[in-house]
Amino acid sequence: MKATLGRFLRWYYRPWIRGTEHVPPSGAAILASNHLAVIDSFFLPALLKRPVVFLGKDAYFTGRGIRGRIVATFMRGVGTIPVDRSGGSGVEAALRTGLARLAAGELFGIYPEGTRSPDGRLYRGKTGIARLALESGAPVIPVAMVDSHIAQPIGKRVPSRHRVGVVIGAPLDFSRYQAMASDRFVLRTVTDEIMYAIMGLSGQEYVDAYAASEKSRMASRSGEPTPTAPGGPGGRPAPGGPGSRVAEA
């Protein structure tokens, strides 16, 4: 299924990818990606030689009708693992799933924002990514999906034929913090460093708020996104300047 889907995606959408040399040929690693559209979970696994799975909300696997069956088939085909994200038990189940994959020496993908960006900006990362990195000891490889939200805006069921890009950055090593996986300040520091690396690859504007909270705010008010001040995760200067936007080489 993955091979067939991969061939179709490459033929129809002509996606591009840079930085594959940063993905190790063997051994455990965490791929930490921004999340712009549902199809992010299709393109990255399809473009990498090594198998990689992402967690997906269980609703993707329980849809009704033809569309529901197609989405479920695609998700299973690229190796997405269903998880109940409705409560704390769901978070722990996701963490255990990731740790099991990494203990087996495999690649595990995660979206630190926890949900799709509501407006194409990069939102605050949740510290589950830091726990996963520190408890597993695996390196974190930052990934930027580019323009997938243009191909598939929120609410659009079938993505348009717009080129999607993937940029993979150099691995991040957090072994210096490995004994501090229960320290919330360390978890936030590690998470912010990961988000900063993703922002540097994607060129997105950073918002120091959780994406889920912003979705709720936009739904209850005018729909206008929260204005932000320049800056990056952890109060760092944002990578900027002319030409900082990611573009195809």
Rank of each mutant, 00 (worst) to 15 (best):
M1Y: 13
W16C: 02
I17G: 00
G19N: 01
P24E: 08
A29S: 05
A29K: 04
I30G: 02
L31R: 02
A32R: 00
N34K: 03
H35W: 04
D40C: 14
L47V: 15
P51V: 14
K57W: 01
D58Q: 13
A59M: 07
A59F: 09
I66V: 15
R69L: 11
V71C: 05
V71M: 09
M75D: 05
M75V: 03
V78W: 06
G79T: 10
D84T: 04
S86Y: 05
G87Y: 08
G87K: 02
G87A: 04
S89D: 15
V91T: 11
V91M: 14
L95W: 01
T97E: 06
G98N: 01
D119H: 08
G120V: 08
R121D: 03
R121I: 10
L122K: 03
Y123H: 01
R124N: 05
S136F: 12
V143H: 01
V146D: 00
I150G: 09
A151V: 08
G155P: 09
K156D: 13
R157K: 12
R161M: 15
V167D: 02
F174L: 06
S175R: 13
S175Y: 14
S175C: 09
Y177Q: 05
S182G: 13
D183I: 10
V186G: 10
L187F: 04
V190F: 11
T191G: 02
D192S: 08
E193G: 00
I194G: 01
M195L: 04
A197S: 14
G200K: 03
L201M: 05
V207L: 10
A209G: 07
A211G: 01
S213W: 07
R217K: 06
M218P: 00
M218D: 09
P225L: 06
A229G: 07
G234N: 12
P239T: 11
A247K: 14
A247D: 10
E248D: 12
